[in-house]
């Protein structure tokens, strides 16, 4: 902070009951947020959990009916396929976006001319909605209109690129669109972290004759860990919430081959009239998020402790 501030002078006021009352002002200011957030986070989540153990179908009912909705869920192929797709997509999306992002960041860190322009180009997809991303990639990946027909028109008649219309591979179309959307974001995060690396350490390594690969592995990677953890957390929650991207790209198809848990929840709640089952599926999503988050947060905490209060 280099800004200098001139403090406006205020006329001194005598201490009074009003002055003491004024100490309650900040609490009063926070109160609406506390109430609203409290309802949103605790009441709503508990309410949803409660609805998941009722018999609610089209309308909510509040009589306890056990965990029937939870067990039925795992017999529903739409749900189990969705969970499997999320696991496959989540791993590929997070790992590949991170790898591509780190690769881009390392390239961008080599004193590149036009860095600002390149960064703007790589990052712009993050400003674009999943609906737009999904729609555009649907057109491009659609074999009868997009890339396949483009290459065939160039003269390569036997060219095949029809991931999106094949049950077994359509999920990779979602992965491609996801990586396109996220890798610039990873690049910017990693690049900012790289710029915070201690250059003296790097120089010392170079003087000692360490290879660039070794310097990256031994000196740079350890210092950018916290950023990688943040990236991981953000991508993980993008992955779990995956909904509009798939809806626009494949609509869950062909068949139900690219259905996702978030789509299942929406379908049960607002199309199938199975409120309890939709609520139960949402609870599983929350459980999944928490189970994956806790070890990461613990790891993050340990790393921060070791580095000694990074704030």
């Amino acid at each position: 902070m280099s800004e200098t501030v001139t403090i406006p002078s205020f006329a001194p006021r005598p201490k009074s009951r009003a002055a003491r009352l004024s100490q309650l002002v900040p609490i009063a200011v926070l109160l609406p947020t506390m109430v609203a957030t409290g309802i949103y986070i605790f009441v709503f989540v508990l309410w949803n959990i409660y609805l998941s153990v009722t018999n609610s179908s089209i309308l909510p009912v509040y009589d306890f009916a056990g965990f029937d909705a939870y067990t039925r869920l795992w017999r529903n192929p739409r749900w189990t396929t969705g969970v499997w797709n999320l696991a496959l997509f989540g791993v590929l999306y997070i790992v590949l976006s991170t790898v591509v992002g780190i690769f881009l960041a390392i390239l961008m860190d080599q004193k590149v001319k036009g860095e600002n322009l390149l960064r703007s180009i790589f990052l712009y997809p993050i400003a674009i909605s999943f609906v737009v991303t999904g729609t555009t990639w649907q057109w491009i990946l659609n074999p009868s209109t997009g890339l396949q027909s483009f290459v065939r028109n160039l003269g390569w008649e036997s060219f095949e690129f029809s991931l999106i219309t094949d049950r077994d591979t359509a999920i990779y179309a979602v992965v491609i669109a996801g990586i396109w959307h996220a890798s610039g974001f990873v690049m910017v995060m990693v690049l900012a972290a790289l710029r915070g690396v201690d250059t003296d350490m790097v120089k010392a390594g170079q003087i000692d004759g360490a290879s660039m690969a070794k310097i990256y592995r031994r000196i740079i990677l350890p210092t950018i860990w916290p950023v990688l953890i943040s990236v991981f957390i953000i991508l993980l929650q993008f992955a779990i919430k995956t909904f509009d991207l798939v809806l626009a790209l494949t609509h869950g198809g062909p068949g139900i081959s690219t259905t996702f848990p978030a789509m299942f929840v929406y379908d049960r709640l607002f199309a199938a009239g199975e409120l309890a089952q939709g609520a139960a599926a949402a609870v599983w999503m929350l459980i999944g998020l928490v189970v994956l988050f806790l070890p990461i947060l613990a790891l993050n905490w340990v790393i921060r402790r070791q580095k000694g209060a990074v704030k």
Partner: peptide, 20 residues
Amino acid sequence: AITIGVFLPPQVVLLPWAIA
């Protein structure tokens, strides 16, 4: 609490929001 609010999957509050 506020941090939880940032990370909460919206699906978990969708039905209560609709009812409320």
